[in-house]
Amino acid sequence: MAVTDRAAVVSAPQTPRRRRLPAAAPILLLALTALLLGIGNFLAPGFAAPDNVLQLLKLSSFLGIAAIGQTIVMLTGGIDLSIAWVITGSAVVFTANCSGADGNIAPAAALSLGLGLAVGLINGWGVTKLRISPIVMTLAMNNIMLGATLVYTGGTPSGSSGPLVRALATGNVGFIPAMVILWCLLTAVTVIGVRYTRGGRRLLAVGESPRVSFLTGSNNDRVVVAAYAISGLAAALTGILFSAFSGASFLGMGDQFVLPTIADVVLAGTSMFGGRGGYGGTVAAVFFTTILTTVLVIGSIPQGVRSIVYGAAVLAAIIVQRLLSRRDDTGQ
């Protein structure tokens, strides 16, 4: 998928591409988020109070950081299914090596981020050099990480994160949660990186048309490998922070992140086929889906119905997007 060339496949002349969608999707999502906050406030007074909104943002930030990588990979036309067990694996490595001491944070975090980076590089290598489709490559790496994590832990993860990281994941700076500040910084870096740097423009170009990008002198393979490497790093960072937030690492802790990151990236209007979109919309989508889930929980809706509503909301959102854009986007 990553290396197919849409421009070469579609030979018929096309209507000019409409650009208003990327802006429309996040605005729609933010409007729906405001509506949900209103409903939440009705169900539980104080839900939309600034304090609580900040807590909700903190809750969203873990998914948000994992979604940075997914966004960047999907901008190249790829997908990263391996983040589930990269998150779990790096969290397990982090807590085991940190064992609750601040002094161990640096080496443990370096080991954990190195693991994420390594998996990302292998994913990128497989997708570019071996030309394996991203779904298969990252699915296989996910399996390998799953097994490796089980072998490494012997089935029971151990240790805990140092108090410093725990303060970052759960504490406040003034009245703003530290995680929200971190997420804002990472968001700024990502948005500026994708929009305004040469690397970001190459990323969009590779997703839009690999051939044109190649002819303009870009080393496509290097761009794609970098995208998967960033995804691996983002997943490892999520694992470290989420294990500190939860108090410990546990097996399967990363599973809840994979499909929501993909759904959020697509909800934000980023094309499955690469080239269009950015991280700003993903932030809105992450916040929207987190609040949706929270509202359903406080409305004491049973889990089965929550799952149906979540799926229906994602389906409705992409149908609305399709009707808004009316662009023939069947290229695969």
Partner: peptide, 18 residues
């Protein structure tokens, strides 16, 4: 509707799980 299969079935996956 010409929606991408992976995201459509991701949504219906959640619906059928529910």
């Amino acid at each position: 509707l010409r929606l991408p299969p992976i995201i459509v079935t991701l949504a219906t996956m959640s619906i059928w799980q529910g």
